[in-house]
Structure formats: structure tokens, C-alpha cells
Simulated scan of single mutants.
Amino acid sequence: MTAAAVGLSHSPLIGKNDPAPDVVASVEKAVDAARSFVRAFDPELVVLYAPDHYNGFFYKEMPPFCLATAAHAIGDFDSAAGPLSVDTDAANALARGALDRGIDLTVSARMTVDHGFVQPLEVLFGGIDHVPVVPVFVNGVATPLGPVSRIRALGTALGDAASALDRRVLFLGSGGLSHDPPVPVLDGAPPRVAGALIEGHPPTAEQRARGEQRVVQAGRDYAAGSTTMIPINPEWDNLVLDTFEDGRLTDVDDWTVEWMGTQGGGSAHEVRTWIAAFASLAATGPYRMTSRFYAPIPEWIAGFAVATAVEEHTT
């Protein structure tokens, strides 16, 4: 097997509440470099680690992570809707491999996914059905959250299991870095909101539109300096990126849930997707980061990053 990894932030506000043109241009340049990296690597399979934003997973059953043998995108924030090109045979093989390696993995035969999964597929591949994929949900918002060490263990197990596939495998982490968008929380929620978070009642088109507009307005308020959200934290974001670049993945075992939230905001735990992706790559052997981009972008409520990495022996 040949392996590579990409970490890519996502934001539903891209194209809806953009920063200055020079910032957009710098992001597009970094994304173009990642696209070129992916084209050159030409993956035969993508293992995609991504979060959910209460569109597919709810408190009625909330696993810490879940692998899909089939998945369908809902099309929120103008992202693509429809089935992902899930490689069911590879998904089943990876699921068995993770379970054999001591990971208590949940498996979904009908996963619902949102823009957290769709954006990286659209950005890097041009669509949700352009490359065989194994989607892996990693919970990054619904408390209580488990220890970060278990996410590293998940990535390690799936990376090790992928070695048996004898294919070019791209491990892709979607999310992060520091950001604190207006995501609803169960604790203290009014009954209607609590019911939706527990049961997962699909919103009407009108309700979804109103919710998406609230997020857009939150981005505008944040960029204007009027907000109660935890600020983007470039120092913490770069510490996270340094950890991946230096290959010091065991350091994440000491990252506590509380520390991550204090440093990076309520949705900083989307960094768990990057941890899983880089742990999967590290399971195949030493790696080196080939590109790294970072910018704090208030308009997108995100410490926005793009990074690529390959096995050390890969030219």
C-alpha cells in the first residue's frame, strides 16, 4: 500500500461571507496546491474522517466514531446532496480490521452526512461521487467527548488495516481548527431544541434556511467584532499543526477535552479528524508534511488550515 494524508478545514460560510479578496486568494492557492497533490498521488481509495453538525447523528444514539458502508449527503449550505461513492468492500474490510485491533467501532449501513463530509470531496475531487471513499464519522461537538487518545488509536487501527488493501490510500481529515460557531447544545436546551437534538427530527426547508441564515449572520457579527464566541486562537492552531508536522502524535494523548475547548472553542474537537488521518498515515511508517497553510478567518468563524503529507520514502 502507498499512503498519503490531507487535512482540510471546512466552513459553511465559504462563498456566503467571504473575507478580503487577498485572503480568499491565499486560501485558493493553498487549496490548489492540495488539489495538485491529490491528483499526483491519484488515490484509489479515500478514508474520509469528518464530523457531523446534528444532521446525521443525534443524542438518541451518539457514538464517538462510526464507519459507513453506505452514506447519503443531505445537501446543507448548498453542498451536494445524494449518495457518496462508498467502497463497501473496503469499508467492511476496514471495519473488521479495526475491530480485530481492539477498536470498539460502530458501523452504519445508511449513514447521513452533511457539509463536513461533502466539502472536502467537492473541493479536492469535484464531487461526492468522483472517488471511492470510506466515510468515518468522528464526533466533535456532542458532549460527553471521549479521550483524544482513542481517536489516535482509531486512526492507527484503520491505517494498519488499510495496509492489507494493497491500494493507494488517501487519509483525509475534514474540520477545525479553532472555532466556536453557534452549534446548539443539549444541556439547558428548551424542549423543542432538546427533542430535535435527541430524536433528529428533520427540519423543514424553511427551518433549515432560517438556521443557515443564523450561521451566516453569526459570521458577519464575528468579523465585525460583536460576538460572544471564543476567539480564533492562532497560537493553539499552530501548536496543533506543529504536532502533526513533527510527527509527535503521541502528544495528543495528553490533550484533555477541557483544554481543547478552552483553547480552541466549542468546535475545536473537529481537530480529532486530523488526528485520525495523520495517525492512519503514521501507522504505515514515517511521514513528512509537504505543504502547510494557515490563516485565521473570522468571516468563516475558523482558524483555516490546509496540509498535505506523504510517507517518508515517497518522492
Rank of each mutant, 00 (worst) to 15 (best):
M111S: 04
R101M: 06
V24I: 15
A71P: 09
A98S: 00
R101V: 04
E61S: 14
A80C: 05
A25P: 02
A71F: 05
V113K: 01
A71Q: 08
A68Y: 04
L48H: 14
E61G: 04
P19E: 11
H53R: 09
P83M: 01
A71S: 12
T69D: 07
N92M: 14
K60N: 10
F41I: 12
D22R: 10
G97Y: 07
D18F: 01
L48W: 08
G56F: 06
N17Q: 08
F58P: 03
E28C: 00
A93P: 05
A25M: 06
A70R: 13
P21T: 09
K29C: 02
I74R: 05
K29P: 00
S79G: 05
S108T: 09
L67S: 04
V23D: 01
A40Q: 12
N92R: 15
T106Y: 14
P21R: 06
D32N: 09
I103R: 02
R101A: 13
A20L: 05
L94I: 09
F65R: 11
L67R: 06
T106F: 11
V86Y: 01
T106I: 06
A95Y: 02
D52T: 04
V23C: 02
A81E: 06
H72A: 00
S26K: 08
K29N: 07
N17V: 05
Y59H: 15
P43A: 10
S79C: 11
L105W: 06
V31A: 10
F37Q: 05
S26P: 09
K29D: 09
P43I: 11
E61T: 13
R39F: 00
I74P: 00
S26A: 15
A93F: 00
R96Q: 13
A98N: 01
L94Y: 03
E44V: 06
L94V: 12
P83C: 02
M62Q: 12
A40P: 01
A73V: 06
A40V: 00
P83D: 15
F77P: 15
D32W: 02
A91C: 08
R110D: 13
A68N: 07
M62L: 08
E61R: 13
A30K: 09
N92G: 02
A70T: 11
P43G: 08
S85W: 15
A33P: 02
K60F: 03
